[in-house]
Amino acid sequence: MIEAIPFPQFRNIGIRLGFPFKDDPPKPVSPDKSLVLCISLADMSTDYGYTWPRVGKVAEAPCWEPTLHFGGLRGWLYGHGDHALGGYIEHNAKWLVVEANTTEIVQFEGACKFPRGKVRFIGTSKGAADYLLKHEPRSHEFPVIGAYRTVGCGESVCVGAHGAACAGANGIAVAGYSGFATVGGRGTATSGFRGKSAAGQRGIAVAGANGVATAQAHGVAIAGPQGKASAGEKGLIAIWYWDFDVRRYRLKVGYIGEEGLDPHALYTLDEQRRFIPV
């Protein structure tokens, strides 16, 4: 049985990973260099036939043609872009931060490529995102893939795919694909496909398809198709589904305390579009 997402406490939120850092400002690379987020399989190989070297070594693309999509080393400039262009991401994938010559980087929609660069970091997605946020000030302009960020009450935070965003009461937290977003009371938490969202009392939690949304008392939890939702006392749950008869999406809504819906229980929809406990 899948349990509802545990809701964190926000009594003493003081961590602020936004820019600028209070005690440890970002250490930017030289003006003619840029940091790129890259990914590999566990053995450091890639799906385009290249194997990355260790930290401190220069990676050189075996084939380079700046005017074509193929060839070159691939990644996301400053950690921004479409994570799906990295292909299937395994749980034990290696995440890299590579320093490349800015003038050699070729950007295309959602990603970039470059002929060579020095490997600066190898580790987890969170570790790579932390390295980018610390050493590349331009990474703060848009959500970073894999970033974990926390802000206080009434503030907003947004991270990319595979990341985690946490905000206090009356805050807004947004995470991308397979991300985790959580807020305190009266806040709004939103996550993408296969994401998890949690909101406090009178908050709103929204998760994409196959995601999980959880809200506390008087809160609203909304999940996409094949998703799961849970709410506290006097809360509301809703799950999107596809209506084949009229070929459109519809929203199934349930009220906690009515029609057998229990508080804090996690529900999904069966084939007859009825709420059933998970």
Rank of each mutant, 00 (worst) to 15 (best):
V36Q: 08
S40L: 07
G163Y: 08
P225K: 13
G184A: 09
K252I: 06
A128Q: 09
S178E: 13
H80K: 14
C112Q: 15
A175F: 03
E99K: 05
A129R: 03
S230V: 03
A129S: 11
S156Y: 02
I15G: 00
I2D: 08
V151A: 00
A164Y: 06
V29Y: 04
I89W: 03
A84G: 11
G146E: 01
P277V: 13
Q9C: 09
P263F: 12
D43F: 03
G152R: 08
A231E: 07
A84N: 11
A61Y: 01
R138H: 06
A198R: 10
L236D: 06
S45L: 08
P137S: 07
F10G: 04
G219R: 10
N210A: 12
G176V: 06
G195D: 10
P53F: 07
L133F: 03
I222C: 08
G195C: 13
F114K: 03
G127D: 02
Y78L: 04
K234N: 15
K27E: 14
E233I: 07
G257F: 11
F19V: 14
L132E: 00
Y131F: 14
D245K: 14
Y50K: 15
P263K: 06
C38H: 10
E90K: 09
D245S: 13
R247D: 15
R273E: 15
T124E: 06
A4Q: 12
P263A: 01
G235Q: 03
K228A: 09
G195M: 01
F19A: 08
K196T: 14
P66S: 04
F108T: 11
D245V: 14
P8F: 00
I239Y: 01
W240S: 10
C153R: 09
G187R: 01
V151G: 00
T190N: 02
A209Y: 04
G117R: 04
G56F: 06
H162V: 07
P263L: 05
P143Q: 02
G75E: 11
T51D: 01
L133V: 09
T268C: 14
P143M: 06
E233F: 09
G192T: 07
G127Y: 01
V174W: 12
F114M: 13
D24R: 12
G179N: 05
T268W: 12
R16N: 13
E155H: 04
R138L: 12
A199R: 04
V212Q: 04
G123Q: 07
K134S: 06
V183W: 07
I15A: 08
H91S: 12
Y88L: 04
A265K: 08
D243F: 14
